[in-house]
């Protein structure tokens, strides 16, 4: 095991992993650096049984969770979104009907091949209100359970679901407009 070759062997993979989740290049680069530094400091504890890549990704994942949790708590609360009762008002009327019903996407799989789906998704995530973007990041780490997210972010389960729901609604709308070029929503 040679820390000097880590960067060459694993740098790109760690960067991709981070970038796909934090949606910000500078932050992703910093995370990669912090991961290597932490790995360097703890290289005695590294067990050869786990592959170096897996070990490094594990450290990176913790770094992403820490960063995201901090950002979530530090980001200001958007006045309009502070009240859970009104969180879905942009999408549903008082009777619970769609204000602008989703229309079927034509051939999304095909569009996926010839457009930069990920770039658009990144842009759409960046356009979410900060707290929602950070929640999305935590959620997409996959192995962070809802219970853990609620605990880390000090949210109730209902809270969490409404926020996740709004995130999906907003991403859906953003993708429809910017990726598929369909005339979406309001």
């Amino acid at each position: 095991m040679n820390p000097q070759t880590w960067l060459e062997e694993h740098g790109d993979a760690l960067y991709r992993y981070a970038l796909l989740r934090v949606h910000n290049e500078t932050e992703a680069q910093d995370l990669v650096q912090e991961t290597f530094l932490a790995a360097l400091k703890n290289r005695q504890t590294f067990s050869q049984q786990s592959a170096t890549r897996t070990w490094l990704i594990g450290i990176l994942k913790h770094k992403i969770i820490d960063l995201t949790r901090r950002q979530f708590h530090e980001s200001p609360i958007d006045e309009d979104l502070a009240s859970e009762d009104h969180l879905l008002d942009d999408f549903f009327n008082e009777k619970g009907h769609w204000i602008s019903p989703p229309t079927a996407w034509n051939n999304p799989e095909k569009s996926l091949e010839n457009t930069h789906f990920w770039q658009i998704l990144h842009q759409c995530v960046q356009h979410l209100p900060p707290k929602f973007a950070y929640l999305f990041t935590l959620k997409e780490l996959n192995d962070v359970t809802n219970e853990k997210i609620c605990k880390e972010l000090e949210l109730s389960a209902t809270n969490l679901w409404v926020m996740l729901f709004r995130t999906r609604l907003q991403l859906r709308q953003c993708l429809e407009i910017h990726w598929l070029g369909q005339k979406g929503g309001s």
Partner: peptide, 29 residues
């Protein structure tokens, strides 16, 4: 509307899951 929504959520989830395969994205440090 809800049918379209359901289909899109399935699509979205399926493709976001592909982030686990980092070769899918062509960027380097």
């Amino acid at each position: 509307g809800c049918r379209a929504f359901k289909k899109q959520m399935t699509f979205l989830q399926h493709f976001i899951k592909r982030t686990d395969n980092d070769d899918f994205v062509d960027v380097n440090l």
